[in-house]
């Protein structure tokens, strides 16, 4: 690998100071969680967020104290340190009980080895896995002005929200966090901020080079989840072209509040289909106030694909979304 300097801050303030100093010295910075994504980018010299092929400084966030824990507040919510590994998230008994969608999403990322090293923040902030971007094409994500998938191999690309870039957001955990109404705590040299998960991700039409609102100097410290209301049920369903070790072709996170048989509130967020986690409000609206029957679930699946605009080779995602949404919604509503 090309050289870089690794820095091990002990505190968030030290991390901020390191970023500030690096910037003053004219150096580019990348944040490292588990490195399972970052090191592949660095080795292959894929152009990073700050438009460079290799960062000068790696800020190793794993050395921060106290940001790799799941802590439950007395008010019922939970704060999850950004450096919590996906394995710890997937196996945490209370996450499994109260926020099952998140445990299931984290538990289906990649492989055991990736989940043991990979972190919540790194998962949410991972770069696109579009094969053009990863293989050195000068696309929008690499600072260029073309999306090679449009006229090329676009089997895995977006059917919603694409243009000018047609990447899909690769994270399994992100749709779960959006469905759970998470808030993200962010730190950086110009201060800390709290960002709602519904405002965190951005479409290419608003920012073609980045997938979220973080500036190059900002990093994610932790994620807060609200207390789960009574009757909350949730699940994550991921469709892959093999059983493990790959990103979703299509996935769906569903979080539903039930009042007896009636669905009183719901969020449905799709993964693998758009450049950001893709919420489908028109499908959600059909469920509210109703008993979830097979027939209703089918209309919900139909509503979930309205407005889809496939490219030449990814129209198969439309029936996939239709079916997966219908099946997941019905199974969840009727589960005990």
């Amino acid at each position: 690998m090309k050289t870089f300097t690794n820095q091990n801050p002990g505190t968030v303030d030290e991390a901020i100071e390191l970023v500030r100093t690096a910037r003053e010295d004219g150096h580019s910075v990348s944040f490292a969680g588990g490195g399972t994504d970052l090191l592949q980018l660095v080795k292959e010299r894929v152009v990073n967020r700050s438009g460079q092929d290799v960062p000068d400084v790696l800020v190793n966030l794993k050395s921060l104290e106290g940001v790799d824990q799941v802590s439950f507040s007395s008010l019922g919510g939970v704060a999850i340190g950004g450096l919590t590994t996906l394995s710890n998230l997937a196996n945490n008994p209370r996450i499994l009980d109260d926020y099952k969608v998140l445990a299931e999403a984290a538990g289906q990322v990649g492989t055991p080895q990736i989940r043991n090293a990979g972190t919540l923040a790194g998962n949410v902030c991972q770069r696109p896995w579009c094969w053009y971007y990863r293989n050195g094409f000068p696309c929008y994500k690499a600072g260029g002005n073309e999306c090679f998938s449009i006229a090329g191999e676009n089997q895995l690309h977006a059917i919603f929200g694409g243009g000018p870039s047609f990447i899909v957001h690769p994270s399994d955990v992100a749709p779960a966090l959006v469905a759970l109404d998470a808030t993200f705590n962010v730190a950086g040299p110009s201060g800390n901020r709290v960002i709602s998960s519904s405002d965190f991700f951005v479409l290419p039409r608003d920012n073609v080079q980045h997938e979220n609102v973080l500036s190059d100097d900002e990093f994610l410290i932790s994620v807060d989840l609200p207390a789960p209301p009574n009757g909350l049920k949730s699940t994550y369903h991921k469709v892959m072209d093999r059983d493990a070790w790959t990103h979703a072709l299509v996935s769906v996170a569903v979080v539903m509040e039930m009042d007896g048989d009636i669905c009183s509130a719901v969020k449905i967020v799709l993964g693998g289909v758009a450049p950001e986690p893709w919420r489908v409000p028109s499908a959600e609206a059909l469920l509210i106030g109703n008993v979830v029957t097979e027939e209703l679930a089918r209309s919900v699946g139909e509503a979930a694909v309205s407005g889809a605009r496939p490219l030449a080779k990814n129209a198969y995602k439309i029936p996939l979304v239709r079916g997966v949404v219908a099946r997941t919604v019905l199974a969840l509503a009727t589960s005990v």
Partner: peptide
């Protein structure tokens, strides 16, 4: 593969399997 896609580099770090190609030596301190 040297990129997290095969598993032949798996070692245990504090008892947990990880890909040794996809983590840094300095992080093993």
């Amino acid at each position: 593969c040297n990129r997290g896609e095969c598993g032949s580099c798996t070692v245990l770090v504090d008892g947990e399997p990880v890909y040794s190609c996809s983590t840094l030596a300095v992080w093993a301190d």
